[in-house]
Design a protein around this nucleic acid. Structure first.
Length: 556
RNA sequence: AGCCCGGUGAUGUAAUGGUAGCAUACGAGGAUUUGGCCCUUGUUGUACAGGUUCGAACCCUGUCUGGGCUUCCA
């Protein structure tokens, strides 16, 4: 009866806390982006962990913008980030900003000074770095370390009041310059920046550093479990030190390994360069690892959530296979996407014995996996478009498509017999000739004829045209940023976008809406791109269908 | 290496002192009006060496090995 579900290490900690009644069983997490860029697939992992863990234990998640550095943050990013999180399917309990707490953080700083646990340092950034030592060498105390509490108070207040230039002084926590943990060597907790803040305007000219904002914000919001990536492991002793000395709510920081995915680049700087260099068309280019990029490519939010769940959570370094992501996308789309027939590289097919001018309406299921998706009508006639690659003059034995003498089923249509092809002067096939079996109509087939293969097709007269944007990997190396001797840009795949301008679509696609997802049968999943207009439809390839025939061919 | 994290099939993740499992990938077969989906099935694993124990992926010791740690960024 009882199913033992395995827990990840974070859930184990939570369940232990729950059983010891810590925080009276309350679970509260937070997702703390800095509004200085767009969300990418790596953030999705952090979002899923924070929101889904809270959800699982009946807790809540705050969205908190970590906006303590006015020079790089913008409201524009706030809106984009909120939009992306909503799209991913998560609702936050509260929308907060670290900047909301500037007054309180300032009070915390005063308190620390009064406790003799913080001091104003007049040293330059270079001097501070110099005195910091190295990982193998202890640091040295600053000459300003032993200032009196009164002097520190006076100077810090003057810092706040704008008496000093940027960089003239900083406030440092007085911890331990000999600590083996570099972050405990009297970390800077406030710096002077005469900069306009996207929310507080010009109210402040001093801003807290990450270490004096993040953990304190967690405490103020009474976050029970502050889940972050491994890189913050070294900050935890400081996180705890500040909680202890400030005597504030004891949030607990837990670190997990960030998710790396083959072929994907997630650094802001590198992403930006791709945009600036024109390698891609923008932050939402379907080849970008941004949330807006994968969304435009057609990845469903549910697939992304499943993907993160399947990738799991642990503390070890990882590189998730791209194929797992694609598998999740296909799986979701297989259940939800409507099917349609689209010929991407068209060639004429003429059914010699089918009456000229006659049109039959064929009935097709929208999604065989989902009966409730209903059916649609597709016109059938003597003159069709089929895929060029579905005809071969000298076909191998296992080629279940068109070749002289072979039978094939036209999906939702008739079985046809291939009589040969017409070629132009250069020997290129320009038209395939077939005859059909009138009693083999789909759904009422009593011909007794067998056809191993099934092809998709579109009636020429009613076909509509569209542009297909066939995207594939942006890089041709699974870890483009991990080569010491080569820049990641050297691995850019020159064929990451192949545009098919002359695709022939079944007429039902004329009413395709932006963002709608389809499976173009036997080919790939596609979504209608935002660039589509009334007279020009554009589809982005989300992910190709598996193709075991092609795979077999490649092996030869 | 001064300190901190880690090392389980190809990849990711379980098993928390008692049968090394699951997913993806790869392979074989079946079914099929999508060479998709689906079904059956196969190969590959506890970094190494000791120790504790009736019994070790798990506990202990050592070794090897990967990553991280010196921003007035977060």
């Amino acid at each position: 009866m009882e199913e033992h579900k395995s827990l990840n290490f974070i859930e184990q900690i939570i369940e232990e806390d729950l059983s010891s009644d810590k925080h009276q069983g309350r679970i509260h997490t937070r997702f703390p982006p800095e509004p200085n860029g767009y969300l990418h697939i790596g953030h999705v992992k952090a979002i899923c962990i924070n929101f889904e863990t809270a959800l699982k234990y009946g807790g809540k998640t705050n969205l908190r913008f970590d906006d303590t550095n006015p020079t790089s943050e913008k409201t524009e990013y706030v809106d984009a980030i909120k939009n992306d999180i909503k799209w991913l399917g998560f609702d936050w309990a509260n929308e907060f900003y670290a900047s909301d707490y500037f007054d309180q953080l300032y009070e915390f700083a005063l308190k620390l000074i009064k406790l003799g646990k913080a001091y104003v340092d007049d040293s330059t950034a270079e001097e501070i770095a110099e005195m910091k030592g190295t990982p193998t060498e202890a640091g040295k105390n600053s000459p300003y370390r032993e200032r009196s509490i009164e002097e520190n108070l006076d100077l810090f207040i003057k810092m706040k009041e704008g008496a000093f230039e940027d960089g003239a002084r900083v406030l440092r926590a007085k911890v331990d310059m000999t600590s083996p943990n570099m972050h405990m060597r009297d970390p800077v907790i406030y710096r002077i920046k005469h900069a306009h803040h996207h929310r507080t305007g010009d109210k402040w000219c001093i801003y807290p550093m990450y270490d004096f904002a993040h953990g304190q914000s967690d405490s103020i919001e009474e976050i029970t479990h502050s889940l972050c990536s491994l890189e913050f492991r070294h900050h935890r002793p400081l996180y705890d030190w500040l909680i202890e000395n400030l005597e504030i709510f004891p949030s607990r920081q837990i670190e997990f390994a960030r998710m790396n995915i083959e072929y994907m680049v997630t650094s802001k700087r590198r992403l930006l360069k791709l945009v600036e260099d024109g390698v891609v068309t923008g932050w939402d280019d379907p080849r970008m690892a941004t949330v807006s990029g994968v969304r435009r490519k057609g990845y469903p939010a549910a697939a992304l959530r499943t993907f993160c769940e399947k990738a799991g959570v642990a503390k070890r370094e990882n590189l998730i296979e791209y194929s797992l992501l694609e598998s999740c996308v296909r799986d979701e789309l297989n259940r939800t996407a409507y099917r349609a027939m689209v010929v991407m590289d068209p060639i004429k097919l003429t059914i010699s014995n089918y009456p000229e001018g006659k049109t039959e309406i064929m009935i097709a299921e929208n999604n065989r996996e989902d009966e409730s998706a209903g059916v649609r009508e597709i016109p059938f006639s003597k003159h069709l478009w089929i895929e060029k690659e579905d005809y071969m003059e000298n076909a191998p034995k296992k080629f279940f498509r068109l070749s002289e003498g072979k039978n094939v089923r036209l999906k939702n249509g008739y079985i046809i017999h291939c009589d040969g092809a017409i070629k132009d002067a250069d020997g290129n096939v320009t038209e395939v000739l077939c005859t059909y079996y009138p009693d083999s109509k789909s759904g009422e087939d009593n011909s007794g004829i067998k056809a191993k293969g099934t092809l998709h097709w579109v009636s020429q007269e009613q076909a509509i045209s569209a542009e297909l944007r066939n995207y594939s990997l942006l890089f041709n190396d699974p870890t483009p940023t991990s080569h010491e001797d080569k820049d990641y840009t050297e691995f850019i795949n020159p064929e990451s976008l192949v545009i098919k301008t002359d695709a022939k679509l079944e007429p039902s696609l004329a009413k395709a809406k932006i963002g709608q997802q389809y499976q173009f049968m036997r080919k790939a999943y596609y979504t209608t791109d935002i660039d589509s207009t009334e007279d020009k439809l554009i589809f982005n390839r989300t992910v190709a269908l598996k193709d075991s025939w092609a795979k077999k061919q490649n092996k030869k």
